[in-house]
Write a protein that binds this DNA or RNA. Structure first.
Lengths: 345, 345
DNA sequence: GCCAATTCCGTAAACGTTTACGAGGCTATA
DNA sequence: TATAGCCTCGTAAACGTTTACGGAATTGGC
């Protein structure tokens, strides 16, 4: 693996000149710059990450922190992979690299974050799965690390964030079901302290009250936001007496839909016939039968916004992106299916 | 952010002593070591990544390369997140960090790999989604980078690999369907050049021939290994005349099952009644109705094996892991469901 | 009480870059 | 021709570690 030293020797110039040429500094003759660039390409020279990071104090790497192994995570691969892709289309313009920082399920997320940040591994971070109260936010803000959160939090350090419109999902969903005559509408609530669930349930509750429908705690199903959780909800629903069972249901993500469908079918209940279901779109949920009525969002666009929100906070990119702290709820589009056709008893 | 210099000043010792104390070198008094460790913990000192990497020539980071944004990828989040978790349980014992190296869909994977390797970003790599002929293997082997492949390839550079038992899946699946009287058995084939599809189809073909059933190219459905692909297969099947339509089907992954189920339902065909389907397990496929007969594998165990196979090739860990190049096909367990109950016409 | 061995620690070089600084050569102007 | 200015490039320091080396202080054996 060739370094700048050998490259310089090969060209009979000093390493300083090579560095300046490669970094597009003005004080280098165009002819020699051309010569250097060609030789670098030919010999496959790539600047050593450690050397550059040590000297410059920045790595050119942005980390997207996520937890592995947790069966409790709500968002899935298509979600993240699409978001990543959006982020990268922006980063590519600035020679920034995106890596996923994988926090083991055995390590405390906050400790992991501290470790990664203190090591100077990344210049900036994107954190996801924000908790209702999230230490990471205070920590990052306190240390002046540029970051953006995918998800709101009650912890407010003036950080930029983007989030799906969970209020809108619950509100539109409930509106839609109420308009069809439903009064007993079930809702998913998270068993952990991720923030999105609270927002969702809160909006659900307020919307119900706006319609004059009393809030019924028995219709709040507390579990993990994944397939298994959906399945548990279905079993709980099936076990309820007819006059107490929800006739409609709003779900916060696609994994729940899958488990719910499975569990309902096992119990002989058919979504769209016996219970109205409104969920969230994914390549997965897209093929459920009957077709799921759901909320959709461009995940690439989300990724792009995320990247732009991050760069807007980084001094190095000042002026290239609209100033100010971006805090945006991304609206979602309702895709009509058949799963919410069921009428109340 | 405190460095070793300030830590040393704070303790009135030299930076050399601090470094030795923190790295567990023998030539340091136990009392001072204790003093140093305590101060380091108290002040939150974490060695700078760049400095350490530059001096040591190694980063303590292992990269797992994967492509983002590609809707064509076959494996999903539960797959990777579970594998990651397995890898990390092994890495944790050696202070190794796992990061996902995200190759944008707009960048050539091989170019990305070269860039990452030349930069010295990671000490070792895990590559996945191996192609039938994979440049990355030659490149990594040629440059002496320790790596392990998740997936076989015709490109053989003596590299270690692990792979799911796609032969076994096709063979057992076909055996099972033939035993039930099926003769027209459909199979998925990849539209790209990932290796696993070839292995799968090849085994399918050989197993059929072993049973004296003629191979019918019309029963090979060439598409992408995801939900959409499964949906396309279903539509193709539904459009076939009854006497040409496959009465059974073997699928290579869980995403295909989901799309296939959706597409079949749309066409009024029910898996397990009108067509026998055998697929692969996932939290997702687990909740399909009717219950999918599928092949299952512990993904955490896969991750652990992957990590061990990698460390076995790294000189720094010599002796700690069984020597030799690990090349192992991981057997899968058949989980009986109802989706393959359909009988041939 | 002297020499050798051991224990502990400080010094300084090295890793591969980037960049401030200054030197040299050239051009242009008077 | 002298001087100022510009263009181009080399020199060397710096980034934060690790580690080879050597020196001082202590210990042990006789």
């Amino acid at each position: 693996m060739i370094g700048i030293k050998r490259l310089a020797e090969h060209l009979n110039v000093s390493i300083g000149t090579v560095s300046r040429a490669l970094n597009g500094k003005p004080d280098v003759n165009e002819a020699t710059r051309k010569r250097i660039l060609e030789a670098a390409a030919e010999l496959g020279y790539v600047p050593n990450q450690a050397g550059r990071a040590l000297r410059k104090g920045s790595t050119g790497v942005v980390g997207f922190m996520m937890q592995t192994g947790s069966q409790i995570t709500g968002e899935g691969d298509v979600f993240f992979m699409s978001v990543f892709d959006g982020v990268q289309t922006v980063f590519a313009r600035h020679q920034l690299d995106l890596v996923a920082l994988l926090c083991s399920s055995e390590e405390d997320p906050h400790a992991y974050l501290q470790r990664v940040v203190a090591r100077g591994f990344a210049d900036a971070l994107i954190i996801s799965a924000t908790k209702r109260h999230d230490h990471r936010i205070d920590y990052l803000a306190g240390h002046g690390i540029p970051f953006v959160a995918l998800g709101r939090s009650l912890t407010d350090a003036g950080q930029p964030w983007l989030d799906l419109d969970f209020e809108g999902m619950a509100e539109t969903g409930v509106n839609r079901l109420v308009a069809k005559g439903h009064r007993r509408i079930g809702v998913f609530a998270p068993i952990d302290d991720t923030n999105l669930g609270f927002v969702f349930v809160d909006s659900y509750r307020k919307t119900l009250e706006r319609h004059g429908v009393a809030f019924d705690p028995d219709l709040v199903f507390r579990t993990h936001p994944n397939e298994r959780g959906g399945h548990q909800i279905a079993r709980a629903i099936a076990a309820m007496p007819d006059d107490r069972r929800p006739t409609g249901f709003v779900l916060i993500n696609e994994k729940l839909s899958v488990g719910l469908y499975g569990g309902l079918h096992e119990a002989g209940l058919i979504p769209g016939r016996d219970i109205a279901v409104i969920g969230r779109d994914s390549p997965h949920a897209h093929y459920l039968t009957p077709k799921l009525t759901c909320f959709r969002l461009s995940l690439r666009a989300l990724g792009i916004s995320l990247a732009e929100a991050l760069l807007a906070t980084m001094p190095a990119y000042a002026g290239q992106y609209p100033l100010g702290v971006v805090r945006k709820v991304l609206p979602m589009e309702l895709v009509e299916g058949d799963s919410d056709n069921a009428l109340p008893l």
